[in-house]
Amino acid sequence: MRRSVRDNGLGLAFGGLFLASLIGQAFAGLAQFNEQQVVQGSEPVSLLDYLTSSSFAVDVVENWQSEYLQFFFYVFATVWLVQRGSPESKELDQAGTESDEDQRVGPHAQDDSPAWARVGGWRTLVFSRSLGLVMGVVFLLCWGVQSIAGWAAYNSEQLGQHQDPVRWTGYLAAPDFWNRTFQNWQSEMLAVGSMAVLSVYLRQRGSPESKPVGAAHDDTGQTG
């Protein structure tokens, strides 16, 4: 295998799985959309029409926002909260942002440390939180786009049913917006909590998401 492929196995594999799943969603979504069209006495639409519809957009992006919310929460929560026995947690006495020495910032930076870890001031402050910040910003953008695409899709459904369209602010208070939002949030929170708790007593040999198989159930913060 080429080295660049092997070096990027995780990123490439999940990128490929994402695209395959999105294609699956496109075809299944089109079929469901056209079922609805027939029920309403409207003409079925083409795949191109569906892929350029707000209905497709909101179905994709409502899932995106919850994933980034999940990682945003997880990245920040794991700074401050610990879980005894979990490889997802830090050791119990390390809760918090830790010392500059532990984090290799400013004068404690090493030769190969990123420049923004060394430089100090606002750049080190931002770089020190960049993973959570980007997850949080992408979440907010996705949620905003969900509200816009969901609003457009909602209004075209309203028109199909000879109902009045609503304003964007009206859509933000609509059950459709919050049902889409919460049904995605609940599953993410359950999955993250499960990962933190189930990994205390269960193992996956060779995975950095797990403790070593022989590690004690009480061992916290070990990966292997």
């Binding site: 990123g11 990128g15 707000s54 957009a57 994709v60 905003g144 786009v145 075209s156």
Partner: peptide, 30 residues
């Protein structure tokens, strides 16, 4: 590290372009 950086940029671009596209569909009211 060149290929790793390229993948990093590809992921961020995918998210950004995807969001811009979906926002556009919503704003066009399609």
């Amino acid at each position: 590290m060149g290929s790793v950086r390229a993948l990093f940029v590809a992921y961020l671009s995918l998210i950004g372009l995807g969001l811009a596209y979906f926002a556009l569909l919503g704003l066009l009211g399609r």
